[in-house]
Nucleic acid binder design. Structure first.
Lengths: 172, 172
DNA sequence: AGGGCTTGGTTCAAGTTTGAAACAAACCTA
DNA sequence: TAGGTTTGTTTCAAACTTGAACCAAGCCCT
């Protein structure tokens, strides 16, 4: 089949998107590195944990939520654990499992870093967009994410029964 | 000043965006790594070069267009040069300068990889969006990029005179 | 001309990411 | 219930990124 090349509009959109996403990740990473001594991903890990019941989550669930590989997560968690931001606990019900638990120190660091981070997100992103555009961005992003996720993982649905791991996020 | 936290709509948009951009970069990187043996950035370098006059560009210009640091570019170009995708030439007019030139082999590799890449971009992104959304994405991205660039570099404008480097991209 | 500042580019070490391989526990099935 | 497969996690080496430090070469300015 002959390639369906991008139209000029698509080209423009694609290039603009690439530039924006690079610049944005960069700005955010730099700010967090400066003010919290960790890259964006690491901050996100703490953030997700802080919102989970009992501030704990299994590695796989954490990876799933953050859309990163388990391997990448292992490395990050190892560093964060070394820094005292979180600790690992064994899972009682599944001896393979390991659970990341946010420590009080980790929570404190997060609380301290949050305002600066939000400010950066705001000034880099939301201050530049109209309310309407915020909605558009969400829809567009959701559409992309949806598409890319169903590809590999038609997970959940029927086999996601209550007593299964997937629905008991803290595994304890 | 008290932090202006994100509204629920902003939260949703932000999370959706984060997920989408991670998944998208991932999908694209994986495809290119598989089919062309190089990550997305490296492909982009070849791509930008291929569209430049004489398929050559100064390092700084290349970095500027790709929105990456010079250091990162140096590393990438070193690898690509080792692989024969491009070569470096000295700049005649400015002995500090070095110019990356796409080789015929590099061009061939690019041509071979392009269809697969475009197909991935299409199926991951544009097939999921309406025409209207493509336009919205461009506007949103442009707004973000604009904001993040003027911060550091209020370059160009008046002092971007014709005979200056910035406007003679090939420096030769 | 002789500093001193700026710019273009690379280098270096430390940190991060990748993907494949290794392991171990859990699950299935005959 | 033994063996085979799947799932959860880590490990390892190789690749990539980061930011600061460095080296020239160009650019003032007096």
């Amino acid at each position: 089949m002959t390639t369906r090349w991008l139209t000029p509009e698509e080209q423009r959109a694609w290039r603009a998107y690439m530039a924006a996403s690079l610049l944005l990740e960069d700005a955010i990473d730099r700010q967090l590195q400066q003010d919290a001594g960790m890259p964006h991903l690491y901050y996100s890990i703490l953030s997700v944990l802080s919102e989970s019941p009992e501030r704990r989550l299994r590695m796989t669930d954490l990876a799933e939520r953050l859309k990163i590989t388990r391997s990448r997560l292992t490395y990050a968690v190892t560093r964060l654990e070394k820094d005292g931001m979180l600790r690992r606990e064994a899972c009682r019900y599944d001896k393979r499992g390991s659970i990341a638990v946010l420590t009080d120190e980790g929570f404190a660091v997060l609380e301290r870093a949050a305002p600066g981070h939000v400010e950066t997100v705001r000034s880099s992103l939301f201050d530049r967009l109209s309310e309407e555009q915020v909605g558009q961005l969400e829809e567009i992003s959701a559409a992309i994410a949806r598409g890319l996720q169903e590809e590999d993982g038609p997970r959940a649905a029927a086999d996601d029964v209550p007593w299964r791991r997937r629905s008991s996020p803290t595994c304890s």
